[in-house]
Computed example of a mutant assay.
Amino acid sequence: MDTLNLTLAATLGEVGAPVAPTAVDQHDDAADLTRWRDLVAQIGAEIAAPLTAALERVTTLTATGRIDRAGLRSLRHEIELARNAGMICQQLSRLAAGRVAQSHERVHLTHTLQSVLAHRTRELQARGSQVRQTLQPVEVIADAPLLFGLLNALLDWASACAHGPIELIIDTKPWPAYGRLVCRFPHRPLDEAAGIGAPPPSAELDNIVWRLLEHTAHAVGLTQKREIEGAYVRLTLEFPRTINPLLDEAAMPATLERDFSDSVNSKPLAGSHVLVVSARRDTRTQVREAVKHMGLVLDFVGSIEEAFEFCQDGLPNAIVIETVLKGARFKQLASEIRNEVPDFVFIEIDEQGADFQISSISQTGHARVSRNAIMSALPSALVYELTRAM
């Protein structure tokens, strides 16, 4: 018996005894540390660069007391770049820490991409980005808001790096029958020499938006492959959890049935962009406090005219507006937006009425939140309306 015990102890190790890390483990730890160190340095650089440019403009403004419209537009753009980098950093932190609660459901990938493209038409046009679509109908099992965030990150990355038209393709591989999303665009000007002596791929391809795209694709459970084809870059995302229309629900893999859920209460909205139209400081403060835990990007304007100007270059994901500011100009703005994005989210802050009225039972198609219930009801209203629209 003693011999047997000694043999087991030698084979399995004494209970509670520390196991020395292997050379492979140490190599992996060192590689992970290097990747995170590089990522932190990259985030710092991408936040510092636009802030440095903005600070120079502010210094000039302080010295001269003047700034023209173009300079003001550039200042706003630089501040927005820094803010967006900070928001991406927060999203990366959540993904890396595994704090994203997912609710898997059946999602139409093609319709979701078309919705994202419709939502961002103004912004893409303002950037001069041309998108060519070849889309077959494909349904997948995924967390809808996380997929929505992935597609937005894909557009952010492509539109920032493309030097020509962006091609988007959705189809299904013959075997295995996985849904596939392909994004292809020139990453450098096409008139640059190709072949021997051609410049290497631009470092811009590995910006922090790409890091967010990588981590989000991993969280969704996708297989990703990025290839350089001369002046073009090609990203392929494969969806292992693809609905096969030839199979009935009973033939679905058991793992999908276990994960399937219609719940929307825990879906993350981090990174969603909300424009608040309010002329009153106390209302702005209440809104900011009510949603500060949600990871939203908030912008505030004080009038409908300012909202018009704000939306010219791109639409937010939702508009929250005080009912007292509604009028003919707001109806015009809402009509123009709904013509582009039929399910766009509007939430009115009413002086009276119920704590929260959903959009589907409202005569205007807008959700309503009582002014006295902003703190308690506005977060729920945003969760319900934004996840419904995704």
Rank of each mutant, 00 (worst) to 15 (best):
V100F: 09
L12W: 04
R69V: 06
G295L: 03
L168Y: 03
R57P: 01
H293V: 11
F310Y: 13
L72A: 13
H187C: 00
L378C: 06
D143Q: 01
L269I: 10
M375V: 08
D156K: 07
A203S: 13
A307K: 07
F239I: 03
I337Q: 02
K267T: 03
L181C: 08
E322F: 03
A251S: 12
R329T: 14
L61C: 11
D156Y: 09
N317A: 11
V58R: 05
A144P: 11
N152G: 07
P145C: 01
H215S: 10
S335K: 15
L124E: 01
A318F: 04
A45K: 13
L235P: 04
R288K: 14
V58T: 09
L146V: 15
A367I: 00
R73Y: 07
F330V: 01
P186T: 07
A20K: 13
N317C: 08
E305F: 07
Q90R: 15
D38N: 15
I319Q: 03
N152F: 04
P268A: 04
H104K: 05
D262N: 08
T64Y: 09
V383I: 14
M390P: 02
L181H: 04
D350I: 04
D171Y: 08
P50N: 00
I321G: 10
R127D: 09
L378F: 13
R37I: 05
V276G: 06
E204Q: 11
A354R: 11
T283P: 05
R66E: 14
S263V: 09
H215M: 06
G13Q: 02
H273P: 06
R73A: 12
A101R: 13
E336H: 14
K225V: 02
L235W: 07
V131Q: 00
S359I: 05
T283H: 11
R184A: 12
T22Y: 07
K326E: 14
L378N: 07
L150T: 00
D32T: 02
I358P: 15
E306T: 08
A142S: 14
V277K: 03
P200F: 05
H273Q: 10
P240Q: 00
P165E: 12
D171V: 05
E14P: 13
K267P: 00
E123W: 12
A142N: 11
L109R: 10
C161Y: 02
L237N: 07
I166T: 11
V24K: 06
A231C: 10
V131H: 03
V58H: 06
E78P: 00
S74T: 13
V24A: 07
R241A: 06
L382T: 05
D282W: 11
F185R: 00
S360E: 12
G164T: 09
L150P: 01
L147G: 03
E238Y: 10
S261A: 13
R120M: 09
A160V: 00
S263Q: 12
L275D: 01
Q224E: 14
R120Q: 13
L181N: 04
R188I: 02
T110Q: 11
L205A: 06
T34N: 12
F356Q: 02
E289G: 12
L33F: 10
E305H: 12
S93I: 04
L72C: 04
